[in-house]
């Protein structure tokens, strides 16, 4: 009996901790937004973070986009062939990339490539007491350190997702048209008639913007709240990757449900 009660107690404790954490991240996001003025006034700070978060993720995003598109082209052709509609492989590749894979896979890659780096950097700044030193000099670390990294991530991720989708479509084209020999004209024209600018492309960009906000908020939060030890920073980095990946997937489900069924 006491075992059951303590088991239930553990469940309750975990749930409360998760809710507490989400609340803490939300209020942290709010304080970032309040202290964001400096990162736009001194835009070079943000540009620097766009370089570290975005430009340095370019290679991994471009290469994985190309490969994902190639695999989609191969698999799509293999399956569509059974129904004699291998010309539609362009539609399959483009829609899956623009709607889902582009925003989601690039967000997952971004979380592990850039999110973890942001957490580690801020966590280490905290562990080496650079953040407290800033506070001593009356410099708000949130507006000087956290907000530029946050906005750098928010700006970078939609661009990376667009690049991922574009590369993926090029990869699908290479496999389906150049290698397998699907007709190039019907590849593009069927794609164009199926992909809608507003419903597919703009919604994909909205998704990646939301993911960018979520990942950057979680990454900066974990770094800022990391215990100032070597262990603490490494734990925070792991937590950033795990919780931002889960957040991306969960948000994706919610956003997709709304986008497919309409917002009302």
């Amino acid at each position: 009996m006491t075992n059951i009660v303590s088991g239930i107690r553990i469940v309750g404790d975990r749930t409360l901790k998760i809710v507490e954490r989400i609340g803490a991240i939300a209020s942290f996001l709010f304080s970032i937004l309040i202290h964001s003025a400096a990162s736009f006034k001194r835009f070079s700070l943000t540009i620097r973070e766009v370089y570290f978060a975005g430009v340095q993720s370019l290679i991994i995003i471009l290469v994985s986009g190309l490969f994902v598109g190639m695999v989609l082209g191969l698999q799509g052709h293999e399956t569509l062939q059974r129904y004699g509609s291998e010309d539609s492989v362009g539609v399959l590749v483009a829609l899956s990339l623009v709607r889902e894979l582009g925003p989601v896979v690039s967000a997952l890659l971004f979380a592990s490539r850039a999110g973890s780096a942001i957490t580690a950097e801020i966590g280490l700044m905290k562990a080496t007491e650079q953040l407290s030193a800033m506070e001593m000099m009356a410099v708000n670390p949130i507006s000087r350190v956290v907000a530029p990294r946050f906005w750098g991530g928010v700006i970078s991720l939609p661009l990376l997702a667009l690049l991922f989708s574009a590369m993926g479509i090029i990869g699908g084209y290479l496999i389906a048209v150049v290698l397998i020999g699907v007709d190039s004209g019907s590849f593009w024209s069927q794609m164009q008639s199926a992909v809608d600018f507003e419903h597919d492309i703009v919604n994909g960009i909205i998704k990646s913007l939301v993911f960018g906000v979520a990942i950057s908020a979680i990454a900066t939060f974990e770094g800022y709240e990391a215990p100032p030890t070597a262990e603490g920073v490494s734990g925070a980095t792991t937590r950033t990757v795990v919780s931002s990946s889960l957040a991306v997937l969960a948000l994706d489900l919610v956003l997709t449900a709304f986008m497919l069924k309409g917002w009302n």
């Binding site: 430009v55 623009v98 661009l159 990376l160 989708s165 600018f197 492309i201």
Partner: peptide, 27 residues
């Protein structure tokens, strides 16, 4: 150099947006 790279990055993103909008989508 930093500005240059970020500029290249943003332009690349913009071009892929244009490609998606006109070549892939029906805008």
């Amino acid at each position: 150099t930093l500005n240059l790279w970020v500029g290249i990055f943003v332009l690349l993103g913009f071009f892929s947006f244009l490609m998606l909008a006109f070549k892939v989508g029906n805008l």
